[in-house]
Every structure is written in C-alpha cells, then in structure tokens.
Design a protein around this nucleic acid. Sequence first.
DNA 1: AACACAGTCAACCGCAAAGGC
DNA 2: CGCCTTTGCGGTTGACTGTGT
Length: 271
Amino acid sequence: MGRQPCCDKLGVKKGPWTAEEDKKLINFIFTNGQCCWRAVPKLAGLRRCGKSCRLRWTNYLRPDLKRGLLTESEEQLVIDLHARLGNRWSKIAARLPGRTDNEIKNHWNTHIKKKLLKMGIDPVTHEPLNKEETKTSESSSHSDRSPDDHDQLKSQETNDNNPSSEENSICSPAENCSNTESNSLSLCDDDLLMSCLWGDEDIPIIDEISWDFPAAGPNLNSNNNGSIPSWDETCAWLLDCQDFGVQDFGLDCFNDVEVMNTLNALEVDNK
DNA sequence: AACACAGTCAACCGCAAAGGC
DNA sequence: CGCCTTTGCGGTTGACTGTGT
C-alpha cells in the first residue's frame, strides 16, 4: 500500500514563488485563515502542493517574521539552545519569535558553524575541539554530548511541559521574563535572553496567539495588547520585502479605514 | 570583461508523528 | 487497534549572488 504523494506531480509547479503566487496565498490565508493545507492550493487557485504553500507561508510570508540576519543575542541564543536541543530546529525557532526553523538552520550551517570552528569549538558537541580529541578515546561522559545523545535531551524536552520536572526546578529569572516579554526577545538584553532560554516554560509562539485569522477578517487592533507586534510593525513586511503594494492584494479584510491609512502611510514612507 | 569558486538561502524531499475514523 | 490522511520536521539540493583572479 503505497504512500499517497503529497500532491499529484502532474501540473504542480515547483521552484521559486512568483509575486503573483504569493499574493494569492496571502490573500487566501488572510481571508480564510490557515485551514487544511492540502486544500489551500485548490482553493487559492495555486498550482502548488499544500506542502509548498505551508512552507512558503511559514518561512517567508508570515507577517510576524523578522527579516535580516540574526542579531548577536539571537545567535548566542541559538548556540545555547543547540547545545541543549541539538538539531531540533523547530524547537529552537520556537524560542526565537519571528524566526523560522529554516532560517535558523541555514544561519547555523552558514555562519555559526564556522564561527564556532574558528573559536575551536565543535559545533556538534559544543566542546573544545582539542578536548574532543582526547575525549574520543574515553567512554562518553555526561558532558560529552554527541549528536545522537539528544535522546536524553528529548526526554528533558518532554519534561519541558511538566512544571514539576527537575529541569524546571532550575530557578532562573525566567519567571520574570513573562510570556509577553518573551515575544519581543530582540528587545531583551542578553541576561533576559538567557533567562528566557533557561526558563522552560514554552514561550507562546506568535502563530498561536495572533495568527488565527478568522474568516470574517482579523480585528486588527484588538489583538495588540502590547505583547504582540503592532499591526504597523507586522504589516511593514508587506511593503518591505515584496515588490507589490498592499492594495494589490485586494483584501476584503483590509476594510478598516484606519488600518488602510496606516498602510498607505507606510507605503509612502517606504518610497 | 569573463570565468571560477564560494557563500547564502529558498525550496524540495522523504520520513515520522499526530490525529481521525 | 490498525489504517489512512495530514502536518511538521530535518536534511539536502540547487539557483542565485558575491568575490577573487
């Protein structure tokens, strides 16, 4: 019994997305919310597989994404999290709001890996490289964290959700780093970042709290209670990284005059 | 200017987990 | 309980861009 392919290969487009396709996808998700990805291409009029649509949305089109290189603080956080979690990029990304697993994975492979090697640190074990050489002859110790040694971490990970787990007993200022603050890590200093890192409460992911687009259209202002990037911030991406204007979307949900004025103002600023 | 090489990153692929029936 | 579908994840690829010769 063969596995059903994620899409019929016939007539399904692959490769880079065009602005037109992006528009269709954004338009669809803004008006209908994120529903069954498999159905999205059909409903949105795209000749893509659902998987591709989901990837495009999560890695590129999501309004809450930060663009640009990771900051020093974020990079340090990634390194620390990688030491703890290994190549669990999605888990790492979940702790860096506005960053995607793909982005972090790429950044790790292209920048951080080399940086660590330059510093004489094994990017896999996070141990000093010369230390590694001597250690290879020894049997593994608790601190010798091989890439496959993350099963242990995995169990820790599962305990992350358990408030009574041992790891959670590590008292850190994380408690002070409230969820709302955690959503704007870029504003935190390194101490706060580390606090957030060692606090094992799952940082609420922006997706979960603000990207549940109702079909009726988002109430753009009501969700902004300070913990979520303002609409002004989140919509800037539309003007920032795409070569089309907001009006081009023809979004029914953008019928709020105030919002439209803001968007227009942003667009003017951008020019 | 032309070419080669290296670096970067968006996108694809295959697998596994999750969830519904 | 087992099958099937859907979603999510991590590894990998390949196109594009920048830099050096």
